[in-house]
Amino acid sequence: MLVSAILTAGLYVVMSYGLALIYGVMRLINLSHAGTMMLGAFIALTLNRAFHLDPILGSLIVLPLFFGFGVVLYALVVRRIARSAPIVSLLLLFGLWLVLQNVAYLIWGNEDQSIVTPYTYLSLRVGFLSLAVTRLIVFAAGLAALAVLAWFMSSTYTGKAIRAVSLNYEASRLAGINVERISALAFGLGTGLAAFAGSLLTLLFSFTPDFGGVFQTKAFAVIVLGGLTSFVGVAVGSLLLALVESFGVLFIRASLQNLIAFGLLFVALVFMPGGVTSLFLSRRGGRG
């Protein structure tokens, strides 16, 4: 059960980075995150059907494609409301989710779709454990994305600028950072990561244009648990949610599993709004 929880955490990590990045830089809750994940899944499906492209390779194509889509979306729409009251951006992005969903209905219809690869049903035997190859792939992708993002944020000028804007928007602007450009890049990267996650999720789930709603809620819980802006926090939040969900079914009915995410969200918002990582930081005398 522990191993299963860790693999599930990998899944949550992959789908939460994009949400955390956009919130970190722009203080926007991207309600179109689910729609982008869903579109990423359908693009992976189309690539698979048209060119027999494996979803893993498909996800690597989807990532830059949706990065561009996100940048364009930012320039045309999101930029105009980026500094508005929260309700404005929430409604706009919620509307965008509905538009994306209906576009998918028109293009792909409403039937359950799934991608079956030669390794879809393969498992790896490790002692008495049987590990689904697809889950291992998604887990590895989560770790790889974390490593790349950590490197990008700490070793490149753009990454450092993103971190700076995330910490203090006004001070960054005064320091000469082109915050508009950084915001566009962050929104593009967040959108790309969401679509990347959607493509990878096709390895695990069947999907329709309704796909992504539950995952979006869980991603939201994850980033709140993780402290909203930290990628390491996202990983910690993912692990915490996956562990509580997995072991929670020992004590409550599995039908109430989604309640756990909402419960954790509530607890985090009320008792540790800075996330789990803030507890560790404050104990070490760091920034809370």
Partner: peptide
């Protein structure tokens, strides 16, 4: 003897049980 949510997305924990 366990129940699960209709239209669920992840049954991993249930199946582990």
């Amino acid at each position: 003897d366990q129940s699960f949510e209709l239209n669920g997305t992840d049954f991993t924990a249930l199946l582990t049980q």
